[in-house]
Computed example of a mutant assay.
Amino acid sequence: MALSDGMSRAEVDRIEAKDFALGIGPLRPRNAATLILLDGHGSTARILLGRRHRGHAFMPGKFVFPGGRTDLSDGRVAVAAPLHPQEESRIAGSGYRATSALAQAVALSAIREAYEEAGMLLGRAEVFQTAITAWRDFAAQGVKPALDRLRFVGRAITPPGRVRRFDTRFLAAFRHDVVVELPGGGPSGELEELVWLPIDEAKRADVPAITLTMLDELQRRLADDPELKPGVPAPIYRMHRSRFVRHLV
């Protein structure tokens, strides 16, 4: 079941109980990013999902987009092209912590996670050198990460009362912007099965509630914006005064 605007805290807890371990957790969610890769355009596009290992403590057996926590070192990586300015402001968000550096780190973490979990290297075929261990395989493959084709499609802040909490930006890019696809998937081994599914079929898979919610959002956007133009308003989902609220930025 997808999450929707105006749901009560109890309704959200009930829906997400199968996705998140409920209990005392961090007060401040950690920054994270997800990359939604699309093969094709508009309503016929297929989406890349991967199944998490059933032995994982977090979302075992669920189909998810490649993604994970943002590392501070991600923001120090040189890029072939920066974020589009309108996308940068949406990714950074608002408040005193919202900076261009944060937006770049978040965007780069989405690209890194797509490589580590799915073996997809997004960027430009260029000479690339880095001393940061997590990015050395990009250098070895001759791929310099590029951010200009990333599009912000949504953001979700895990409600309080979870053992793990994330402030996740959902970014999208097209498969034709992937320079290298490793045939065996990503080196992390976190996803045991990778599939490309039409959006309607992806929505019927065993996906977390927030993933289903973002698939709904993406499907509606693609109907009017099949190329994912920059600067299009996109939703943020968060808990406010015991209600799960959606607003556009």
Rank of each mutant, 00 (worst) to 15 (best):
E192D: 15
V178R: 02
Q129A: 14
S8Y: 14
D5W: 07
I236A: 06
F166T: 02
R164N: 12
K203E: 13
M120W: 14
A80V: 09
L228I: 05
D137K: 03
R124F: 11
E11I: 10
A139D: 07
H56R: 15
R155H: 07
A2P: 14
P235M: 09
D148Y: 06
Y96P: 01
V249N: 10
R149V: 10
V143L: 05
V179R: 07
R169T: 06
R241D: 15
D216M: 07
A21S: 12
V207G: 07
R54A: 15
A32D: 01
S89H: 14
T158R: 07
R30M: 04
G75H: 02
V249T: 11
A17F: 11
L222C: 01
G25H: 04
S4Q: 14
M7G: 13
A101W: 08
I132Y: 03
P82Q: 09
E227A: 12
A234C: 14
Q141V: 06
G75P: 02
A33Q: 00
G67W: 00
G119V: 07
E117H: 08
R14H: 15
V245N: 04
I157G: 06
K203G: 09
I36K: 03
V64L: 14
A110Q: 03
I36R: 05
D224V: 11
F20S: 05
G50T: 08
V106T: 03
S4C: 15
S242V: 08
G123H: 04
G161T: 12
P82W: 08
L35N: 00
R52H: 15
V12A: 08
M239N: 10
R221G: 02
A21D: 13
P183G: 10
T213F: 10
R221P: 05
R46W: 06
P226F: 03
S188H: 10
L248I: 12
T34W: 10
E11P: 13
E87P: 03
V180Q: 07
S242H: 14
V127Q: 14
A80Q: 07
I91Y: 02
G123V: 06
G23T: 12
D167S: 05
E87H: 04
A118N: 05
Q104E: 07
